[in-house]
């Protein structure tokens, strides 16, 4: 299994797409962090000044888009092989398809967690630069800030794993990439807006709260600015996302993954 996981990591590191997605993740995180910092404290934005713990938390946890890109990476790890017919070689080398799925999940989770780490560092870094520039005191403890970065790592890793499960279920790369964005940005916003009690259980929302984003407070995130309902505990949110991923993977293992490779 170690060899299989290392093979999948080798595939990822020899694909330009991996670096492209990572670059987009960093760029978007930096951009949205700048925008959040810029509007924090202004009237009518709902974002507290960055001199407050609440405001600083909002601007240093802009890691949701990097998590989504980790999910996209995961889906491509799984179904990109069908787009380019490289699945043939993969399954010739490892005819037991569930083993391939497991190795892909581990590889995507590893690389996905780096997306979360980098995004957490960028978002926190940008926030702290603004704080320093304003001459404010840092309103959050180092422990809290590090905890949010760690949460971004866990959230991105879990969404990357969820992406692999999705990509194993649906072989169309385009469908999964679009599906991930539509789900996270549109569907979760709508459902979360209509049923605030359901909101903490939505997987993308749950991932952002892992990283310390306030429920409904994640920048440009689902149901931004809505009040009501508390986030799930860290463990509950992580378990929820993992369970959804495993459930999708099991369905994929019994359906799509049994199909012929032609």
């Amino acid at each position: 299994m170690t060899r299989l996981i290392r093979t999948e990591l080798l595939k990822l590191t020899t694909m330009r797409l991996t670096y492209g997605l990572a670059a987009v993740a960093v760029a978007l995180t930096a951009l949205f962090s700048l925008l959040e910092n810029n509007r924090a404290g202004a009237s009518g934005t709902g974002v507290a000044p960055i001199s407050t713990a609440d405001g600083l938390r909002t601007v240093t946890t802009v890691t949701g888009f990097a998590m989504l890109l980790a999910a996209v990476l995961g889906s491509i790890v799984a179904n990109g092989e069908f787009r380019h017919s490289t699945a043939t070689l993969t399954y010739l080398a490892t005819p037991r398809r569930a083993r391939v799925l497991t190795a892909k999940a581990v590889a995507a989770i590893s690389v996905g967690s780096l997306f979360g780490l980098v995004a957490g560092i960028v978002s926190t870094g940008v926030g702290l630069v603004f704080v320093a520039a304003h001459g404010d005191r840092v309103a959050l403890s180092a422990g809290s800030l590090i905890g949010h970065v760690a949460g971004a790592v866990v959230g991105a890793a879990l969404l990357a794993g969820l992406g692999v499960a999705l990509g194993s279920l649906v072989r169309s790369q385009l469908a999964t990439v679009i599906g991930i964005f539509v789900w996270a940005i549109i569907i979760e916003s709508v459902i979360g807006g209509l049923y605030t009690s359901v909101r903490p259980y939505l997987p993308y929302t749950a991932a952002t709260t892992l990283a310390g984003a306030k429920l409904g407070g994640a920048a440009f995130g689902p149901a931004h600015g809505l009040k009501g309902g508390g986030p799930l505990s860290f463990a509950a949110a992580a378990l929820l996302i993992a369970a959804i991923g495993v459930a999708i993977a099991l369905v994929a293992d019994h359906t799509t993954m049994r199909r012929d490779i032609t």
Binding site: L4, T7, K11, T14, M15, H84, T88
Partner: peptide, 23 residues
């Protein structure tokens, strides 16, 4: 097999490295 092509963005050497490694 006819369609066992490599990922187009990968070099031939890297494609073979992967095949050698997994095997």
């Amino acid at each position: 097999l006819e369609s066992s092509l490599a990922y187009p963005g990968r070099s031939a050497r890297n494609h073979l490295r992967i095949a050698a490694f997994v095997g």
